[in-house]
Design a protein around this nucleic acid. Structure first.
Length: 733
DNA sequence: TCAGCGCATGTTTTT
DNA sequence: CATGCGCTGA
């Protein structure tokens, strides 16, 4: 019991109740910032100490790799040593691990590969063509979505009825063709990992029993985000005597589009009776103002379990709201705020900029780059998703598993080696007719000379090249293997010959791939093949870059990837109708509520200060569009908000470097050039000091050059227009 | 066979 | 705007 004191001392009563609850089924409804990860980690430590549980008997499941890493770190910190035989990971990661261990029982090839979304889409596109289906009726995207949605529901093509519906019949047909190709190529997509491992247990009672007996303690984070197949997976693994703790928050369910079912929370209470219910409603993260605003926002949702977060913390700063002229103005404003915070002593890593969609990061990045502020973008195009990296990996994949059709397609003629479309069409035909992989089809084409001698020899040369990669593989270290593939495939020299900035970046990325391979550590199965593990990690984690913490960086990410994280300062950018809530979700009330929850998640990431911003005009897909402020802004009580720029005064911030094409007009327009004031370090939102009026904040600018006037709100409450060149304003913070 | 060009189009979030 | 597609000429 000695460990208990250290373990439980810092917990509040509700947390303590959850951590020390008797073994059984437990549902913890935990609001944002209520210490849920903490409870999970402590519970694990408690079970280990109190019940002398073996680490081997513990399974902890999270949704993102980031969350899994966080969980591992916390547990290790509590225990003072490594997590040992514990299984801590994402649903997908754990399912993959199962399939690797039991590939035979799962009816897979020993060298099966993971198909990422991009691979999947290419494959679907190819199948659509082969089946001769009208692409205008079925976009690859829709088909991909359809297949994944069915798999998330646990349904195979054979399980689905078309009910006489022509559209469904076609979709099912594509789904079936897709399944067959994956089977033949020994490929497993993300949803398949779960579905396949579920089936593995269903059809292997002994195996299931083994894992049921092993995992006596199961903990699941973000339970509101589980979908049908994940719920079924957990249900199957859980027995009456399993100690199962699930933690969730219905207000933070943001993965409905991926098949997540909030209802699973209710279903859990029904399916696993008796369930002990514990609520964590005290927030330790955010200031009162932030919490009040977030609570007010989420109250606009009708379908909630209902709860109200509270805090004993200080009221804190008001949430600032900046209405920018356009997206560049927004970016510049954020930069000024960041500079100000950094000068006040905040670390850059304490500051996060969150946005709805990845595309928004670009403008922000450009501005940060120009301002020389180090930053890091999470998500978006990740390292292992870059074309040159995928090409390099495709060579390795094909070397390991010759039947990997997507890899074959990707590199058979890249760099070009005289295998053109006509040859490929023949290869695909032969493959389809004889139910072979492309590789096997290629063998037939050569032995039966189904193509011109020149084409045949080109294909043969390609196959020999792949074989040369394969032969060399086994005596080499992982890094050498990667290097070997790069050289033999002549991919590296191909990119080296290319000129231009972009090509240089590609070569650098390939170098980085080699060093990533050098640093790669096989955590879980040291006896397994490192190359296989490396390829799997590339698909599953796509480059989370956990290691390189070196530089102190401002953090940029989507709202989705911010879930589970917290930052002292949070900027929520692009709060505009159509962008957030996204127009794809705006019409359906159910999806609109999900958008609102997403906003709630974003707001509750902030510990000390939250800054919201939107642009009145935004350039998207080439055209300038007028934007309306997001409805979510109206849903926040105005008492929580401080508007930085009164909406009545809308002016054009003009800066030549940003408006090259408008240079001519610019000279005639009575413009405001507030960026030029940077020499004096003056900008909107800037704190200043005046000899007689005291401290204040700059609200606005007007005019230019020596005629420029500055609007300042002083602490006395007065707002004054001052002529900048006449008065002396001191930068005060 | 393949590079280059013009045209059309779609448009979110992640494992 | 960015990507993919089809067409053309070498």
């Amino acid at each position: 019991m000695r460990t208990d004191d250290a373990l439980t001392a810092a917990l509040n009563p509700a947390q303590l109740e959850a951590v020390t609850a008797p073994l059984g089924k437990m549902l913890v409804l935990a609001g944002a910032g209520s210490g849920k990860t903490r409870v999970l980690a402590h519970r694990i430590a408690y079970v280990l100490a109190e019940y002398q549980a073996s680490p081997y008997s513990i399974l902890a499941v999270t949704f993102t790799n980031k969350a899994a890493g966080e969980m591992r770190t916390r547990i290790e910190a509590l225990l003072g040593h490594s997590i040992g035989g514990m299984w801590v990971g994402t649903f997908h990661g754990l399912a993959h691990r199962l399939l690797r261990s039991h590939w035979r029982e799962a009816k897979l090839n020993e060298h099966f590969q993971i198909l990422d979304s991009d691979d999947q889409q290419r494959l679907v596109r190819r199948l659509l063509k082969e089946l001769g289906l009208d692409e205008s009726k079925f976009t690859p995207n829709q088909v991909q979505w359809y297949i994944n949605a069915r798999k998330d529901e646990g349904l195979r093509a054979a399980h689905i009825e078309d009910n006489g519906n022509v559209v469904d019949r076609s979709l099912i047909k594509i789904y079936r063709a897709y399944e067959e190709t994956c089977e033949r190529s020994s490929l497993v997509d993300f949803a398949e990992l779960l579905l396949r491992s579920h089936e593995l247990w269903l059809s292997n009672a002994d195996l299931l029993k083994h894992y049921q007996e092993r995992f006596k303690h199961i903990l699941i984070d973000e339970f509101q985000d589980t979908n049908t197949i994940q719920y079924a997976w957990i249900s199957l693994l859980t027995r009456n005597d399993t100690n199962l703790m699930v933690v969730g928050d219905d207000d933070q369910s943001i993965y409905g589009w991926r098949g997540a079912k909030i209802e699973n929370i209710h279903q859990f209470e029904r399916d696993f009776k008796p369930v002990q219910l514990i609520r964590l409603e005290q927030n330790y993260r955010s200031t009162n103002v932030i919490l009040e605003a977030a609570n007010a926002l989420i109250r606009h949702n009708d379908t909630r379990l209902g709860k109200n977060l509270w805090t004993e913390g200080k009221p804190g700063e008001l949430i600032t709201l900046y209405s920018a002229y356009n997206e560049r103005d927004e970016a510049h404003y954020l930069i000024e705020c960041i500079r100000e915070r950094v000068s006040k002593g905040y670390a850059r890593r304490d500051i996060a900029i969150l946005y709805r969609s990845n595309a928004q990061s670009r403008v922000l990045e450009e501005a940060l780059l120009q301002a020389a502020i180090p930053y890091r973008v999470y998500g978006g195009m990740r390292f292992f998703e870059r074309a040159e990296i995928k090409n390099a990996l495709a060579y390795l994949r094909l070397a390991v598993n010759h039947d990997d059709d997507p890899a074959f397609e990707r590199i058979v003629n890249f760099p070009t080696r005289g295998i053109g479309d006509r040859s490929l069409i023949t290869l695909r035909e032969v493959a389809r007719e004889r139910q072979l992989s492309l590789w096997e089809a290629a063998k037939k084409v050569i032995s039966e000379t189904l193509l011109s001698p020149r084409a045949c020899s080109a294909i043969e040369a390609f196959m020999q090249l792949i074989d040369r990669i394969t032969i060399g593989l086994y005596e080499l270290t992982l890094a050498e293997q990667v290097e070997h593939a790069l050289t033999v495939s002549s991919l590296l020299s191909f990119y080296q010959q290319e000129r231009g900035e972009e090509a240089r970046g590609r070569v650098e990325n390939l170098d980085e791939l080699v060093s990533a391979a050098g640093q790669f550590q096989v955590e879980d199965n040291p006896q397994g093949d490192p190359l296989m593990a490396f390829l799997a990690t590339a698909a599953l984690e796509a480059g989370e870059r956990q290691g390189e913490e070196g530089q102190d960086c401002v953090q940029l990410m989507t709202l989705h990837s911010a879930k589970g994280l917290e930052f002292p300062i949070v900027f929520l950018a692009g709060l505009e109708e159509g962008l957030f809530p996204h127009f794809m979700s705006a019409t359906d009330p159910y999806r609109l509520e999900e958008e609102r929850r997403l906003c709630y998640v974003g707001m509750t990431r902030a510990k000390e200060h939250l800054c919201l911003s939107f642009a009145e005009s935004r350039r998207s897909r080439g055209a300038e569009t007028m934007q309306r402020p997001s409805r979510f802004i109206q849903e926040i009580p105005s008492s929580c908000l401080q508007e930085i720029r009164p909406r009545a005064n809308i002016m054009r911030p003009v800066n030549q470097s940003y408006y090259k094409s408008e240079a001519k007009q610019q000279q005639r327009l009575p413009t405001v050039d507030f960026y030029s004031n940077e020499q004096q370090d003056l900008h909107i939102g800037q704190g200043v000091k005046h000899k007689t009026f005291g401290r204040g904040t700059i609200l606005n600018f007007e005019g230019n050059g020596s005629h420029a006037r500055v609007q300042v709100r002083f602490e006395s409450g007065e707002t004054k227009w001052l002529v900048a060149s006449f008065v002396e304003l001191e930068v005060s913070f």
